[in-house]
Design a protein around this nucleic acid. Sequence first.
DNA 1: TTGATATATGAACAATTATTCATATTTTCA
DNA 2: TGAAAATATGAATAATTGTTCATATATCAA
Lengths: 95, 95
Amino acid sequence: MDVLFELSEFFKFFGDTTRIRIIHLMLSGELSVNEIADKLNLEQSVVSHQLRILRTANLVKPRREGRKIFYSLDDEHIGLIFNTGLTHILHKKGK
Amino acid sequence: MDVLFELSEFFKFFGDTTRIRIIHLMLSGELSVNEIADKLNLEQSVVSHQLRILRTANLVKPRREGRKIFYSLDDEHIGLIFNTGLTHILHKKGK
DNA sequence: TTGATATATGAACAATTATTCATATTTTCA
DNA sequence: TGAAAATATGAATAATTGTTCATATATCAA
């Protein structure tokens, strides 16, 4: 498959407010599904749907503990991309 | 406005095959609209539409020279985000 | 000014996608 | 085993968005 196509698909996962807010939360560490829903004031099913997308795309990874499942960022690339984007728009705003 | 919303909007611009291919071309330097259309086998209007989006979002910047307009990446952040994403998916593929 | 070249724009259509609501799994504990 | 808690999934709807086609604008050269 074309790597550029895959790359655009990859970036799509950052291109949604709900998912970006989830990623942002996870910059500080792992969270359960309900913790995410509570902190972001979202319905549980919304969070589950988006987590499945993020998990399938290797942006986050799950860790089961009893009936809870804790999610965290897959690796350091995710945070780096998030922060580089943030730096860019803050830089642009300050002009 | 919420900065996380802006950030997700920003990443949306990387989340399209046509735009990623355009950005990829520009990693090697500036190009005119028709050069992009030729190299990517796209209609001129498709390229113009996408360039307007990329320009408005500060991902690329134009430079006029006669009737031609050359576009290039706005700054080093764009290439850094592109390459970090690429590194991530190549790393994931090789498992 | 006229014709040719380069780029931009507008409207319509088709396709993708996030959310909602209802329900299904999975795990724990009594 | 049965109930409760935590998470996941499926289908439908609504909204967003990329492409197409036609046309408009801008620049240059004769």
